[in-house]
Amino acid sequence: MNAAIAIQLGQAVLVVLLAPLFAGWVNQCRAWLQNRRGPGMLQPYRVLRKLFHKDAVLAHRASFLFRATPYIRFGCMVLAAYIIPTLASGLPISPAADVIALVGIFALGRVFMALAAMDIGTAFGTMGARREMLVAFLAEPALLMVFFTPALISQSTSLSTIVHTLAYQPFVIHPGLAFAAIAFLMVLLAENARLPIDNPATHLELTMIHEALVLEYSARHLALMDWASNLKLLAYATMGLALFAPWGIARTIDGPSLWLALACLPVKLAVAGAALALLETLSAKLRIFRAPEFLAMAFLLAVLGLLTHVLLEGAA
């Protein structure tokens, strides 16, 4: 039991510390693909360090909500890091939240971020909040629907059980998962403010969503917000790996399987990050009103995955 708790803590700490590195890796890959040299993979750490050392500037009208939000959002993402089986499944805290609760935890962070953006009462803040919620109200159901296909396959909504079923049962091809994987990728891009929906590199106000939301934040608050965003990206990546490439995640808590998991994780994340960068480089930003269409397609694809599963495997 103690070992399990130690691994649980270790997994969370590892994810929290790795998150900026993963974001740095994606950015570095993007730079390489665009024939730039890039700032290096450690740049997010430097940014965080710089931000933490600065004095915070708050708008006059900022309320308690504005100051509490960075901590709450960071807390949500750390909690997600506890629950998602990154290294090992079946850890002590993982039964506290299944995939539906996980979506709820992400929603909690998002609602607070949108409210904080409206708190100051600037045009950009409210516009960002509106756009964020616009993306979210479609992305959230899409994500739930994505989860439902593996949930039906493994007869469980617990991520640990899903990983067990997909990785350690005799290998079966689940066509429904193909649909779900594409939908998940679309949701990942939308939810993490990546390219077809939002451009993480831009500071041009009219095209941005995420940057408009955090425009008023500075110093340690901004650092926490950025770190939380990095964590969210990594959380989505590890969720995707758990659902669609669960091989290597330790099932039992013993030395060899944990070392295997520790060896698999960087490889899988490196590949996933590079693929993400490639995908972003290949796509162009959509107009804001194409975004709901993009997400509606993700939603319908996920539903279709569910249907395909019911059609092909449900009857059997």
Partner: peptide, 14 residues
Amino acid sequence: ERASYSPLIVFCGM
């Protein structure tokens, strides 16, 4: 193993 949720743990963890 099918599904479980513990708001108290989520709340306290948070």
